[in-house]
Protein backbone atom coordinates (compact mmCIF):
# COMPACT_ATOMS: atom_id res chain seq x y z
CA UNK A 1 0.00 0.00 0.00
CA UNK A 2 1.32 3.40 -0.98
CA UNK A 3 0.45 6.09 1.54
CA UNK A 4 1.02 9.83 1.26
CA UNK A 5 0.87 11.92 4.42
CA UNK A 6 0.44 15.66 3.84
CA UNK A 7 2.18 17.77 6.44
CA UNK A 8 2.51 21.48 7.10
CA UNK A 9 5.19 23.38 8.93
CA UNK A 10 3.61 25.86 11.37
CA UNK A 11 4.83 28.23 14.06
CA UNK A 12 4.61 26.70 17.53
CA UNK A 13 1.71 28.70 18.93
CA UNK A 14 2.74 28.02 22.51
CA UNK A 15 5.50 30.48 21.79
CA UNK A 16 3.63 32.93 19.62
CA UNK A 17 3.06 36.03 21.68
CA UNK A 18 1.47 39.35 20.96
CA UNK A 19 3.37 42.56 21.16
CA UNK A 20 1.05 44.60 23.39
CA UNK A 21 2.08 47.89 21.76
CA UNK A 22 1.68 47.00 18.12
CA UNK A 23 -0.76 44.13 18.58
CA UNK A 24 1.11 41.98 16.13
CA UNK A 25 2.57 38.55 16.50
CA UNK A 26 6.07 38.32 17.77
CA UNK A 27 7.50 35.61 15.59
CA UNK A 28 11.12 36.13 16.48
CA UNK A 29 12.63 33.04 17.97
CA UNK A 30 9.40 31.11 17.50
CA UNK A 31 10.16 27.56 16.61
CA UNK A 32 8.62 25.89 13.61
CA UNK A 33 7.03 22.52 14.21
CA UNK A 34 5.09 19.95 12.26
CA UNK A 35 1.42 20.81 12.63
CA UNK A 36 0.30 18.72 15.64
CA UNK A 37 -2.59 17.04 13.81
CA UNK A 38 -0.16 15.98 11.08
CA UNK A 39 1.87 14.06 13.67
CA UNK A 40 -1.15 11.82 14.15
CA UNK A 41 -1.43 11.51 10.36
CA UNK A 42 2.20 10.39 10.10
CA UNK A 43 1.75 7.90 12.93
CA UNK A 44 -1.39 6.43 11.38
CA UNK A 45 0.39 6.11 8.03
CA UNK A 46 3.26 4.27 9.68
CA UNK A 47 0.92 1.95 11.57
CA UNK A 48 -1.02 1.05 8.44
CA UNK A 49 2.22 0.46 6.58
CA UNK A 50 3.46 -1.81 9.35
CA UNK A 51 0.28 -3.88 9.09
CA UNK A 52 -0.02 -4.06 5.33
CA UNK A 53 3.48 -3.44 4.02
CA UNK A 54 4.12 -0.68 1.57
CA UNK A 55 5.56 2.76 1.88
CA UNK A 56 4.78 6.13 3.43
CA UNK A 57 5.76 9.32 1.64
CA UNK A 58 5.57 12.63 3.49
CA UNK A 59 4.51 15.54 1.31
CA UNK A 60 4.81 19.20 2.18
CA UNK A 61 4.31 22.49 0.37
CA UNK A 62 6.36 25.33 1.74
CA UNK A 63 9.49 27.43 1.61
CA UNK A 64 12.91 25.70 1.57
CA UNK A 65 13.02 25.81 5.41
CA UNK A 66 10.12 23.34 5.49
CA UNK A 67 12.72 20.70 4.72
CA UNK A 68 13.19 20.46 8.50
CA UNK A 69 9.62 19.19 8.89
CA UNK A 70 10.20 16.52 6.26
CA UNK A 71 13.46 15.45 7.91
CA UNK A 72 11.50 14.96 11.10
CA UNK A 73 8.92 12.88 9.24
CA UNK A 74 11.74 10.73 7.84
CA UNK A 75 13.22 10.28 11.30
CA UNK A 76 9.88 8.90 12.47
CA UNK A 77 10.00 6.24 9.77
CA UNK A 78 8.56 7.69 6.57
CA UNK A 79 10.19 6.12 3.54
CA UNK A 80 10.28 9.15 1.32
CA UNK A 81 9.82 12.90 1.52
CA UNK A 82 8.79 15.41 -1.11
CA UNK A 83 8.91 19.18 -0.74
CA UNK A 84 6.87 21.25 -3.16
CA UNK A 85 8.71 24.52 -3.17
CA UNK A 86 8.53 27.37 -5.61
CA UNK A 87 8.19 31.12 -5.17
CA UNK A 88 5.06 30.98 -7.29
CA UNK A 89 3.34 28.87 -4.60
CA UNK A 90 3.45 31.83 -2.18
CA UNK A 91 0.21 33.44 -1.05
CA UNK A 92 -1.84 30.30 -1.71
CA UNK A 93 -5.22 30.02 -0.04
CA UNK A 94 -6.78 26.65 0.74
CA UNK A 95 -8.00 26.10 -2.83
CA UNK A 96 -4.59 26.75 -4.40
CA UNK A 97 -2.89 24.71 -1.66
CA UNK A 98 -5.21 21.75 -2.25
CA UNK A 99 -4.55 22.00 -5.98
CA UNK A 100 -0.78 22.12 -5.54
CA UNK A 101 -0.74 19.17 -3.15
CA UNK A 102 -3.03 17.21 -5.46
CA UNK A 103 -0.53 17.78 -8.29
CA UNK A 104 2.24 16.54 -6.03
CA UNK A 105 0.26 13.40 -5.20
CA UNK A 106 -0.37 12.79 -8.91
CA UNK A 107 3.36 12.98 -9.51
CA UNK A 108 4.09 10.53 -6.68
CA UNK A 109 1.79 8.14 -8.63
CA UNK A 110 -0.30 5.11 -7.69
CA UNK A 111 -1.22 6.37 -4.24
CA UNK A 112 -3.75 4.24 -2.34
CA UNK A 113 -4.31 6.32 0.76
CA UNK A 114 -3.78 9.98 1.59
CA UNK A 115 -3.76 11.02 5.23
CA UNK A 116 -3.98 14.63 6.41
CA UNK A 117 -4.34 16.14 9.85
CA UNK A 118 -7.83 17.47 10.58
CA UNK A 119 -6.61 21.04 10.22
CA UNK A 120 -3.49 23.16 10.69
CA UNK A 121 -3.18 25.12 13.91
CA UNK A 122 -2.20 28.38 12.22
CA UNK A 123 -5.07 28.60 9.76
CA UNK A 124 -7.61 26.27 11.42
CA UNK A 125 -9.64 25.86 8.23
CA UNK A 126 -9.87 22.05 7.82
CA UNK A 127 -10.46 22.74 4.12
CA UNK A 128 -7.34 21.45 2.42
CA UNK A 129 -7.92 17.72 3.00
CA UNK A 130 -11.41 17.54 1.47
CA UNK A 131 -10.21 19.91 -1.27
CA UNK A 132 -7.44 17.49 -2.26
CA UNK A 133 -9.93 14.59 -2.30
CA UNK A 134 -12.17 16.54 -4.66
CA UNK A 135 -9.34 17.48 -6.99
CA UNK A 136 -8.17 13.86 -7.19
CA UNK A 137 -11.78 12.65 -7.44
CA UNK A 138 -11.47 10.42 -4.38
CA UNK A 139 -13.87 9.59 -1.57
CA UNK A 140 -13.00 11.28 1.69
CA UNK A 141 -13.61 10.63 5.38
CA UNK A 142 -12.88 13.59 7.65
CA UNK A 143 -12.31 13.76 11.43
CA UNK A 144 -11.28 10.12 11.66
CA UNK A 145 -10.83 8.91 15.25
CA UNK A 146 -10.20 5.27 14.37
CA UNK A 147 -9.37 3.21 11.29
CA UNK A 148 -10.97 -0.12 12.01
CA UNK A 149 -10.27 -1.96 8.79
CA UNK A 150 -8.22 -1.20 5.74
CA UNK A 151 -7.00 -3.15 2.73
CA UNK A 152 -6.32 -2.34 -0.89
CA UNK A 153 -10.03 -2.28 -1.72
CA UNK A 154 -11.80 -0.65 1.19
CA UNK A 155 -11.50 1.26 4.45
CA UNK A 156 -13.78 1.36 7.49
CA UNK A 157 -13.30 4.32 9.80
CA UNK A 158 -14.96 6.25 12.61
CA UNK A 159 -15.80 9.86 11.80
CA UNK A 160 -16.07 12.01 14.91
CA UNK A 161 -19.28 14.06 14.89
CA UNK A 162 -20.58 16.68 17.31
CA UNK A 163 -22.53 14.09 19.28
CA UNK A 164 -20.81 10.76 18.61
CA UNK A 165 -19.42 8.87 15.64
CA UNK A 166 -20.40 7.77 12.17
CA UNK A 167 -18.89 4.48 11.10
CA UNK A 168 -18.13 4.87 7.40
CA UNK A 169 -16.97 2.48 4.77
CA UNK A 170 -15.34 3.82 1.61
CA UNK A 171 -13.55 2.41 -1.37
CA UNK A 172 -9.75 2.70 -1.61
CA UNK A 173 -8.00 4.80 -2.94
CA UNK A 174 -9.31 7.47 -0.64
CA UNK A 175 -8.34 10.36 1.62
CA UNK A 176 -8.83 10.62 5.37
CA UNK A 177 -8.22 13.47 7.81
CA UNK A 178 -7.44 12.47 11.39
CA UNK A 179 -8.04 13.85 14.89
CA UNK A 180 -5.86 13.48 17.96
CA UNK A 181 -7.81 10.56 19.34
CA UNK A 182 -6.62 8.19 16.60
CA UNK A 183 -3.26 7.25 18.10
CA UNK A 184 -0.29 8.30 20.16
CA UNK A 185 2.59 9.38 17.94
CA UNK A 186 5.93 7.64 18.44
CA UNK A 187 9.18 9.42 19.09
CA UNK A 188 11.94 9.25 16.49
CA UNK A 189 14.46 6.47 17.01
CA UNK A 190 18.18 7.15 16.96
CA UNK A 191 18.49 5.13 13.78
CA UNK A 192 15.63 7.07 12.28
CA UNK A 193 17.39 10.32 13.05
CA UNK A 194 20.60 9.05 11.47
CA UNK A 195 18.75 7.91 8.37
CA UNK A 196 16.95 11.23 8.12
CA UNK A 197 20.22 13.13 8.20
CA UNK A 198 21.52 11.19 5.25
CA UNK A 199 18.26 11.04 3.32
CA UNK A 200 17.69 13.13 0.27
CA UNK A 201 14.52 15.16 0.10
CA UNK A 202 12.94 15.34 -3.31
CA UNK A 203 12.19 18.94 -4.28
CA UNK A 204 9.67 19.71 -6.94
CA UNK A 205 8.86 23.08 -8.46
CA UNK A 206 5.59 24.11 -10.07
CA UNK A 207 6.95 23.00 -13.44
CA UNK A 208 8.05 19.60 -12.08
CA UNK A 209 4.48 18.73 -11.12
CA UNK A 210 2.93 20.37 -14.19
CA UNK A 211 0.84 22.96 -12.37
CA UNK A 212 -1.37 25.32 -14.30
CA UNK A 213 0.12 28.69 -13.43
CA UNK A 214 -3.18 30.41 -12.76
CA UNK A 215 -4.19 27.80 -10.19
CA UNK A 216 -1.25 28.12 -7.80
CA UNK A 217 -0.10 30.67 -5.26
CA UNK A 218 -1.80 33.97 -5.00
CA UNK A 219 -2.94 33.86 -8.65
CA UNK A 220 -4.86 30.68 -8.02
CA UNK A 221 -6.46 31.88 -4.80
CA UNK A 222 -10.01 33.21 -5.03
CA UNK A 223 -9.90 34.52 -1.47
CA UNK A 224 -7.94 37.59 -0.61
CA UNK A 225 -7.03 38.96 2.80
CA UNK A 226 -8.23 42.51 2.73
CA UNK A 227 -7.45 43.58 6.26
CA UNK A 228 -5.73 42.26 9.37
CA UNK A 229 -6.43 43.66 12.81
CA UNK A 230 -6.11 42.90 16.49
CA UNK A 231 -9.02 41.13 18.15
CA UNK A 232 -10.99 43.24 20.63
CA UNK A 233 -9.36 43.16 24.05
CA UNK A 234 -11.16 41.51 26.92
CA UNK A 235 -11.88 43.75 29.84
CA UNK A 236 -10.11 43.04 33.10
CA UNK A 237 -12.08 40.47 35.01
CA UNK A 238 -13.68 40.63 38.44
CA UNK A 239 -11.76 38.29 40.73
CA UNK A 240 -13.09 37.10 44.10
CA UNK A 241 -10.75 36.01 46.87
CA UNK A 242 -11.56 34.73 50.33
CA UNK A 243 -13.74 32.05 51.91
CA UNK A 244 -15.95 30.00 49.54
CA UNK A 245 -19.39 31.02 50.86
CA UNK A 246 -18.47 34.69 50.32
CA UNK A 247 -16.62 34.32 47.02
CA UNK A 248 -19.36 32.15 45.57
CA UNK A 249 -22.05 34.49 46.86
CA UNK A 250 -20.17 37.46 45.40
CA UNK A 251 -19.79 35.77 42.04
CA UNK A 252 -23.43 34.70 41.79
CA UNK A 253 -24.78 38.09 42.70
CA UNK A 254 -22.43 39.74 40.18
CA UNK A 255 -23.66 37.32 37.51
CA UNK A 256 -27.25 38.12 38.41
CA UNK A 257 -26.62 41.86 38.32
CA UNK A 258 -25.16 41.59 34.85
CA UNK A 259 -27.96 39.31 33.71
CA UNK A 260 -25.53 36.49 32.91
CA UNK A 261 -27.37 33.90 34.96
Amino acid sequence: MKIVVCIKQVPDTTEVKINPETNTLVREGVESIINPFDMYAIEEGLRIKERLNGEVVALCMGPPQAEAALKEALSLGCDGAVLLTDRSFAGADTLATAYTLSRGIKSIKDVDLIICGKQAIDGDTAQVGPGIAEMLDLPCITYVGKVEEIDDKHIKAYRMMEGGYNVIEASVPCLITVVKEINEPRLPSLRGKMNAMKAQITKWSAADIACEVDRIGQMGSPTWVRKIFAPPKREKGMIFKGEPPDTVGGLLSALKDKGVL
Partner: peptide, 17 residues
Protein backbone atom coordinates in the same frame (compact mmCIF):
# COMPACT_ATOMS: atom_id res chain seq x y z
CA UNK B 1 -16.50 22.03 6.80
CA UNK B 2 -15.90 18.94 4.70
CA UNK B 3 -18.86 19.59 2.46
CA UNK B 4 -18.16 23.28 1.82
CA UNK B 5 -14.56 22.56 0.93
CA UNK B 6 -15.48 19.86 -1.53
CA UNK B 7 -18.06 22.06 -3.22
CA UNK B 8 -15.74 25.09 -3.39
CA UNK B 9 -12.99 22.95 -4.91
CA UNK B 10 -15.32 21.58 -7.55
CA UNK B 11 -16.90 24.83 -8.63
CA UNK B 12 -13.61 26.62 -8.13
CA UNK B 13 -14.51 29.43 -5.82
CA UNK B 14 -13.32 30.98 -2.57
CA UNK B 15 -14.28 29.60 0.83
CA UNK B 16 -13.58 31.18 4.20
CA UNK B 17 -13.74 28.97 7.28
Amino acid sequence: RAFASRVAARIHTGLTA
